[in-house]
């Protein structure tokens, strides 16, 4: 649609050394990006979505988007955007909030985990997260099976989807998923985002469950219910994350937007 243009003369003035702005940021991500994306997360918290009932409530669409914040803004910026958005979302959609500060922490953790699922770098952060999650897994298992008499097989099956997420994060699959997300082929991006969202939200839900369990101590038979429900919900979250993430990344690659430092797409 645009006309071809003739060659232009060269600049006459001397070239200047441009010092990039050292602007206020949240973990390296420009504050404006954190603000606006947090507002998006807050709004998506208002859209309940569930393919299966989990503990009697639906989960918000925002849960599928928390990890995307990590890939767009980096670990600290992503955690801030997800956490802030979840906090504002709690006011508006309490039926999806569960325990408020857990929801906020979980959202931030999800973005943090996602920001570690990259082709290169952030190994130290990933190790710290892994240690935290491993400790939670051990304590959770002991409390459920030891103190509350839940059968070990039932516990492992109930959280099988989340243990799969832990495996994806622990093994070299973490780097492989990161490479898929940065691939120019959108089909590979979709697969990477599906697996990455599964990993990030799975670890988020596991972490939240661990803390909730110490507070609420739900009985053994509920774990049996989780065996069927949890993988379905994980699949829904991962599907949402993959569809949204692929659309967003495809769009971002096509338009000349200022790319936040720490973004990996």
């Amino acid at each position: 649609m645009t006309d071809p243009e003739t060659p232009l003369p060269a600049p006459l003035g001397p070239e200047r050394t441009v010092k990039l702005l050292d602007s206020a940021s949240v973990g390296g991500a420009p504050v404006a990006y954190v603000i606006v994306l947090a507002a998006v997360v807050a709004v998506l918290s208002f859209i309940p979505f569930s393919v299966a009932l989990s503990a009697g409530s639906s989960f918000p669409m925002a849960q599928g988007v928390y990890p995307l914040m990590g890939w767009l803004l980096g670990p600290a910026g992503g955690a801030a955007a997800s956490g802030l958005g979840a906090l504002v979302g709690i006011f508006l959609a309490p039926h999806t909030a569960g325990i408020p500060w857990l929801t906020v922490g979980g959202a931030a953790l999800s973005a943090l985990v996602a920001a570690c699922i990259v082709a290169r770098g952030r190994g130290t952060l990933a190790l710290a997260v892994l240690l935290l999650l491993a400790a939670e897994a051990v304590l959770f298992y002991r409390h459920a099976t030891g103190a509350n008499g839940v059968r070990p097989a039932v516990f492992l099956l109930a959280y099988g989807a989340h243990f799969a997420a832990l495996a994806l994060f622990l093994l070299p699959t973490r780097r492989w998923i990161g490479r898929l997300i940065e691939s120019p082929d959108l089909r590979r991006v979709w697969i990477g985002l599906f697996l990455g969202t599964w990993c990030a939200t799975g670890l988020m839900m596991f972490s939240e469950s661990f803390v909730s369990y110490y507070l609420l101590n739900w009985p053994g038979p509920l774990f049996v219910m989780f065996i069927g429900v949890v993988p379905l919900e994980q699949a829904a979250r991962s599907g949402i994350g993959a569809v949204i993430g692929t659309g967003v990344i495809a769009g971002l690659r096509s338009i000349a937007l200022l790319k936040p430092p720490g973004a990996r797409y």
Binding site: P30, L72, G247
Partner: peptide, 19 residues
């Protein structure tokens, strides 16, 4: 899932323009 998720794409891209 696909339809609802497609709502988020223009919203997020628009949000990044705004950002």
């Amino acid at each position: 899932v696909r339809t609802y998720a497609k709502v988020a794409v223009p919203v997020i891209l628009g949000a990044l323009f705004k950002a």
